[in-house]
Amino acid sequence: MRPFSYQRASDPDMAVRALSAAAAASNPLTKAAAQPLAGGTTLIDLMKLDVMRPAAIVDINSLAQGWSAIEPGSEALRLGALAKMSDVAAHAEIERNYPVIANSLKLAASAQLRNMATLAGNVMQRTRCSYFRDVSYENCNKRNPGSGCAAMDGVNRMHAVLGTSDQCVATYPGDFAQALVALDAMVEITGKAGTRSMPFAQLHKTPGNTPDIETMLQPGELISAFSVPGQWPRSVYLKARDRQSYEFALSSAAVALDVQGGTIRDARVALGGVATVPWRAREAEALLKGQKFDDGLAQRVADAAFADAKGRQHNGFKIALGKRVVMRALQQAVTMEIRS
């Protein structure tokens, strides 16, 4: 871990100023000289590994007073960026009206980490690619642009099959972001110029030729809130993994359905553990709309979701697995009892 200056920001303006001041124009956010510290579960971890080397840390936890509210409404759910994962997961109205959100959070990490990690920090968490996390490997395009990718032909069981490029196959590791992307969430971003909103689906960038640029967030910008339109009581987060708990997904699916009289009026499908970013399977969703559910439909949806998937040496199984996870999540969503 490199030395850094530490300061606490007492309000958003100060945080933004501090983060912007240290920002060099040429650096992507992930290498910005100043990094915000919230729960610290990604930042401190990666600093210890020498993967991240900020010269300044801006502790934004004092902003939680204004930025951690959990506000369910009939039109939309608003979640403060600094709300803790555990608090959101345990919120009764979220459990009732957004089970996909509650469960994506409950099935992530451990109780301790969920107590520390904030929602914004969680969606910004970085890949678990072993080669990215080990600086003794020079060849990581995410860390050292243009240096190559050790994972491509290395041990890549955990790596992505969707959204990959010839530069990077690192998996986006989170769970909650799949729920957000499925539910058409908006993300509110606070920066020097004030506050702007964008669809959450646009926040993360697939690696393409710039795997070091992971999100649309600019240095000096902070996520201040998320909002989720509508209510999705018929929603499921299904996560497959080797261990029963405390493990990143091999494959997961966030599914939300609006079923009326046996007909699917609206459907959302997002995939985790298999893609480089929180992955919305829009073509697959389209097959569901206006249809009555059966297993054949589920199969077609699953096939569509993974139509473009490309496996590598050790992760090819994720395609078949991912399809079965989607099918099962759909079945569970269709048959689940809605608490009113």
Binding site: R2, F4, S5, Q7, R17, A18, S20, A21, A22, A23, A24, N27, K31, A33, A34, R53, P54, A55, A56, V58
Partner: peptide, 10 residues
């Protein structure tokens, strides 16, 4: 990382 280390705004 050399550029833009904790400056006066910090």
């Amino acid at each position: 990382f050399v550029a833009g280390v904790a400056g006066s705004a910090l």
